[in-house]
Amino acid sequence: MHADTTPSRKAAALAAFAGLDREPGVPKPDPILVVDKVVRRFGGLTAVNVDHVEIQRGSITALIGPNGAGKTTFFNQLTGFDSADEGSWTFNGKQLKGVPAHRVARAGMVRTFQLTKALSKLTVMENMRLGAQNQRGENFFRALIPGSWRGQEDEITERAEELLERFKLDAKRDDFAGSLSGGQRKLLEMARALMVGPELVMLDEPMAGVNPALTQSLLGHVKDLREEGMTVLFVEHDMDMVRDISDWVVVMAQGAVIAEGPPDTIMSDSRVIDAYLGAHHDAPMSAEEFEEQLQEAEAELEAGIEEKA
């Protein structure tokens, strides 16, 4: 069953992007997230200045860009961890500007962090349980009556166990999260985010600090999210990973979205190369420029000869 859905979901995502323009802010057929004119300034520095961007539902979209491009700041704003100075964005048609982070998560847009935030002194299982929503036992007064939340807790535990098994963390169930390795923490954070039951999963550098052996399994898990009908938006530096799993790539530089496109061609886009390596670093010379340079060189040489004479 798993095998049949895999190609279809990916194919559907790719079909949605077929024939789209490569311009920044190109409209998508079925956007889950629509961002308009979002600006964030830190004093005189404009960290984010995104005019328009849409994220296609059911796809894996990568957000790439050189260091300092404003990717994480942009992420923080969308998820309510930082406030935007201007602009607006909607998730499933719902306005999210100024909405606090916990409400954004409840709406179905759940993020992970660049520096993994495993809750060290809680066990792996407690970390997982924390992710579940609408828990009766999280109300102060109901918490005092164990009978009122036990049943729900058992359901949550069951769901958590399934996820832990899928993420191969079931053996670590009762260990402190702080005792896990860096890669296992990444897995735990992703599994915990899934406990929320998100529609859009935002992964901030999911591969940072993960050893190569775990990379493949993490990649597989990200692909699985799409197969289950979720949308994924992730920030990543590792271009191999971007090429491997993403259906669409959005490129940011100096706070703005400068290009969009499919992963296999995006890196040959001149705007992207300029952003990463600087403008005109390898621009071919035109015939006139060549002539000009040649004449300059000759003139210099002649001047040198004349001086000697």
Partner: peptide, 12 residues
């Protein structure tokens, strides 16, 4: 342990 992680999981 970490406020932001808890916020990201939908808790006030």
């Amino acid at each position: 342990e970490d406020e932001d992680a808890v916020r990201s999981l939908g808790k006030n």
